[in-house]
Amino acid sequence: MMRNWWIKFGCFLTGWNYNILQSCTEASYKQLKKYTSAILILIILWAFVGYSFADRYIQTGTWGSIGIAIIFVLIIIQIERQIILNVGHNKFASIFRMVIAVIMAVLGSAILDQIIFKDDIEKKMIEIVDRQVKKQLPDRLSVINTKLSELQVEIDSLDHRNIELYKQISQTPTINTVSTSVTTVPIKNEDGSITNKTQRTVSNNPIANPKIKEADLNNNNLKQLRDQYEEYSQRKLKAEESLRAELKTKKGFLEELNAMLEILKESTVALIFYVILLAFLISLELFVLLSKSDKNKSDYDLIMEHQLDQKRKTLDGLK
């Protein structure tokens, strides 16, 4: 029962026909088990690579990372089936699969190395961040200094204007305004009639100098400008600290890949380990291809080729 379950699972992974396999010898069963084992190794490897990549760089969360790992697994299964389900020997397909194997091994080793050398990469990232801070800090300070200069010009301009206003206000704290009022006064004539006579009255009323309001408005604007100046001054003091924190929080795949390349250039041991890991992954990727290229074909492959030949002869006869 367990053997049948494993064989059916192997047929599911490889795409083999279980009904045809039942009429084959033990050699075909062994061939199927070899294919199944090779694919399972790749599934485990690329599921781990896909999950780690998604969790570390895409930050999709646990379920999102599991979903991406499943996508990686499905891609691997479909790629391996391209070789396993070939009837006969296709040289072009074999070469193409070798190219894919090298590419996948390079990608896999790059991701695995960034996980294995995590602590070393973080140390190297500190050096890289220091270099980035030295490079980007002058530009950031230049922007802040420009803004501070603009604010200082506005503050000085308003201060100068207020000095002039207060001089004028001290000299003329109040301003006399002239108001005219017209009234009608009834006057009794000698004959007893009444005549209305218009009487104009002119009065002087002192009021506060209107420039006091202008000075108060300028003081409010000065307060806002000085607050902005203080804010940008604080930004200038904390520019390096904030830039460093910003660079550290942004964890990019390419940045860590560059850090990994620097480690490989500086450390011979790391380079040797990377080459060994790359060779190991290429070997794993070529497992199925090498098994398929074996000259001693299983009877399952021979049955498939025989069926194809018979079908061709039948179709040629119909022509």
Rank of each mutant, 00 (worst) to 15 (best):
F92G: 04
I83Y: 00
I58G: 00
D216W: 02
F9I: 04
F117D: 14
L257D: 08
L13W: 00
P210E: 06
G88K: 06
D159L: 15
N218M: 11
D294S: 14
K292W: 00
I70R: 08
D113H: 10
S283W: 05
L74S: 11
D301R: 00
S109N: 15
T198Y: 06
S193L: 09
A279Q: 11
I39Q: 04
I76L: 02
S157M: 07
Y232P: 08
K147P: 15
V178F: 04
L74H: 13
I263C: 07
L42V: 09
M125R: 14
L225Q: 10
R56L: 03
T14W: 00
K223T: 08
V288Q: 01
N86K: 02
L42D: 06
D309P: 01
M104Y: 07
E246C: 03
V182R: 14
A69L: 09
I115N: 08
S283P: 05
F48G: 13
A279D: 13
N258E: 13
K30N: 12
A38E: 01
S283G: 10
L286Q: 06
E255Q: 06
N162K: 05
Q224C: 12
D299C: 05
I111L: 10
E26Y: 11
G192P: 03
Y51I: 06
V182I: 14
K265S: 15
S267A: 02
L237P: 07
I70H: 07
I121H: 10
E80G: 01
A69T: 07
L261M: 12
I95H: 09
E164V: 02
I303G: 00
D139A: 00
D309I: 00
D113W: 07
R200Q: 02
I7C: 12
I43M: 09
T36P: 08
G252H: 10
F53L: 06
V202D: 12
I43F: 10
A27Y: 05
M304C: 02
Y57W: 15
S142Q: 11
T268M: 03
Y166E: 15
K167A: 10
K211D: 02
K313V: 07
Y232E: 15
N145H: 13
Q132P: 15
E127Q: 15
I111Q: 12
A54D: 09
Q59R: 12
A47P: 08
I282P: 08
N221Q: 12
S28P: 05
I75K: 05
L247N: 01
T25V: 07
L42E: 06
G50V: 11
S52M: 14
E256Y: 05
Y274W: 13
E164H: 02
R3M: 14
S242F: 10
R131I: 08
R56Y: 03
E127F: 10
E150N: 14
G108F: 08
P206Y: 08
